[in-house]
Design a protein around this nucleic acid. Structure first.
Lengths: 175, 175
DNA sequence: CGGGGCATGTAACCTGTTACATGATTAG
DNA sequence: CTAATCATGTAACAGGTTACATGCCCCG
């Protein structure tokens, strides 16, 4: 149940409208948490109901832009949640199921799909590296920037891991 | 939508009952795909409906053990799915949201939770390494075993990545 | 004044989660 | 014969996904 807190975080960074939030979930936040605009509108309504955010109140507001901002109660809830313990969700990946099936009933020609995946991950890694070079070059960055950099590095490491795995998989599948 | 195919894969490895499948999803398969027995029973009913698996047919079978086995149509479906293209699901992790929130409204004392996570991942890594040493020591393993080994290595690399990230996070949070 | 893009919203559905219910089998 | 355990199942709900609907606003 992180979506509400991802929204609170984003609103803490800067107040904005629902659609603008959706945009952020396609970019920066979306690197580690995704949400569609439908989900966001549903959740924003709940957050307002709970008194955690406030919007420029307009009745019958379909089509009208609404700006949301974080309220003190929302900030308090976010602070509570950040330091709350929570067990990590284990790895859950379809590709592992495919490899296991290939082992059980193969060979089926999984190399082709693995090569496609390899290319995708290499492309994404390049994208992340470009962002890193552009936004996080400063070696004496602030604590805030170093934390944001770390989040990006998580994405980088993830992609590097997939690339390594895809290469090993291809080597086995082709032997 | 991988659960049905994870079940087909498991049944391809060996026919068995629903509860036994649930057991496997707590062990080997569960390292990369999880499911509760409720989910498994629901899905098995669908797979049988679709003609992909067959069970020892007993009417009004509550409480009676049912053994399931893969049918040719199920095997065909599994083969189709294994090589079907599918975009990787991006990283989705609550901890990244927490780090971003810590950057936005911190410091909040996230170190404590990070240290707990670090210990959890170190423990899991040790578990995986023990399995690796026990089951995958042979350097001249079969193609099948090398694929299974690769799946385990994915888990190992994942845990190693989290350990590295947790350490870097703690260093930043404590500076 | 009409069409396209911006912005919000509804509805239906699927997967996964949690809590609980019930029947069969076996050990003592 | 009864308690524990094996085994299957029902119900309700929450979160995520997809398709679609509606209203506002500005530009030509």
């Amino acid at each position: 149940m992180s979506l509400p807190h991802a929204l609170l975080t984003s609103l803490a960074e800067r107040p904005c409208s629902g659609l603008e939030l959706a945009g952020r979930f396609d970019r920066s936040i979306g690197f580690f948490w995704q949400a569609t605009h439908q989900q966001i509108y549903r959740e924003l309504a709940r957050l307002e109901e709970a008194g955690w955010v406030r919007s420029t109140a307009v009745e019958a507001s379909r089509g009208r832009k609404r700006n949301y901002e974080l309220l003190p109660a929302g900030r308090k809830e976010l602070k509570r949640w950040v330091v709350a313990g929570d067990d990590p969700k284990p790895l859950r990946d379809e590709l592992m199921v495919r490899l296991r099936a290939e082992a059980a009933i193969g060979p089926l020609g999984l190399q082709k799909e693995m090569r496609r995946r390899l290319a995708l991950h290499e492309e994404k890694l390049a994208t992340y590296q470009a962002i890193e070079a552009k936004d996080f070059a400063d070696p004496d960055a602030s604590r805030e920037d170093r934390l944001r950099h770390l989040v990006l590095r998580a994405g980088l490491m993830q992609e590097a891991m997939w690339i390594e795995l895809a290469r090993e998989a291809i080597a086995i599948l082709e032997s």
